[in-house]
C-alpha cells in the first residue's frame, strides 16, 4: 500500500511539475503570458496572478462594482473585469474604424470565475497603456471603382446585345414547307 502511495505522490509531483514547467515556458521574459496560453492551460493558470497584453476592443459594459471590457491578444480574446477607477485609463476601444489602446494588465485569471457564474475572465488590478489607440483613415479609393464601372458597362452592353439579337423559337414546332424562315426567327 505504501508503495502505491509513494508512486501516486511521485506521479502527482511529476505531473504538477510538468504543468509548472509548461506555465513557465509560456511566460515570456517580461513576465507576460498570451491569452491563447491562458486558455490552453486554463487549469494550471486558474486563480493565479497573470500579466497579459493586447488591444482593448468593442464596448465597455458597466456594472455596479466595475465594468467589463474585452482584450484581444492575437486571435484570442478574454474578458477583463476592471474596477471603476481604471475606466479613465482606457481611451480608445478597437473596432473597424479604430485601433484600440494596447494595454498591459495585471490581474487574477479565473477559468471559472466564482464571482461571475463560471465564465473565464481576468480580474484586473493594474492597467497600463503601452501604445495609445488611434483612428483609422477611411477613404474611398476611386481607382477601385473604375474596373467595377467598366465591368458594369461591359455587362450592360452584353445584355443589351443579347436582347437585340435574341433567338425566339417559333410557336409552331413543325417546319413550314414553303417558308423555312417562319420556323424560327431572329428579332432583328
Amino acid at each position: 500500500m505504501k508503495n502505491y502511495l509513494m508512486v501516486f505522490f511521485i506521479l502527482t509531483w511529476l505531473l504538477l511539475g510538468y504543468q509548472e514547467s509548461c506555465c513557465q515556458e509560456a511566460v515570456n521574459s517580461q513576465g507576460r503570458v498570451s491569452v491563447a496560453t491562458l486558455f490552453s492551460q486554463a487549469k494550471s493558470y486558474h486563480g493565479r496572478t497573470v500579466t497579459v497584453q493586447g488591444e482593448v476592443i468593442g464596448d465597455i459594459f458597466l456594472r455596479k462594482t466595475g465594468f467589463w471590457v474585452n482584450l484581444l491578444d492575437g486571435d484570442k480574446a478574454v474578458g477583463l473585469w476592471v474596477p471603476p477607477e481604471l475606466k479613465k485609463d482606457i481611451n480608445i476601444l478597437g473596432s473597424y474604424k479604430r485601433r484600440g489602446d494596447i494595454v498591459r494588465v495585471r490581474g487574477i485569471f479565473y477559468w471559472q470565475c466564482p464571482e461571475h457564474t463560471g465564465t473565464p475572465d481576468i480580474h484586473v488590478f493594474s492597467l497600463e497603456i503601452i501604445l495609445p489607440g488611434y483612428e483609422e483613415t477611411m477613404y474611398l479609393d476611386s481607382g477601385e471603382l473604375i474596373p467595377i464601372l467598366l465591368l458594369a458597362i461591359i455587362g450592360a452592353s452584353t445584355i443589351t446585345l443579347f436582347r437585340l439579337f435574341r433567338y425566339v423559337p417559333s410557336a409552331n414546332p413543325l417546319p413550314d414547307k414553303n417558308n423555312h424562315a417562319r420556323d424560327s426567327r431572329w428579332t432583328r
Partner: peptide, 18 residues
C-alpha cells in the same frame, strides 16, 4: 461612412446583375 467597403459590395452587386 465606411467608404472602403463600398467597392466590395458594388462589385458583387454588378456581378449578380450581369
Amino acid at each position: 461612412r465606411e467608404w472602403p467597403v463600398l467597392p466590395d459590395f458594388l462589385l458583387s452587386i454588378v456581378c449578380c446583375l450581369i
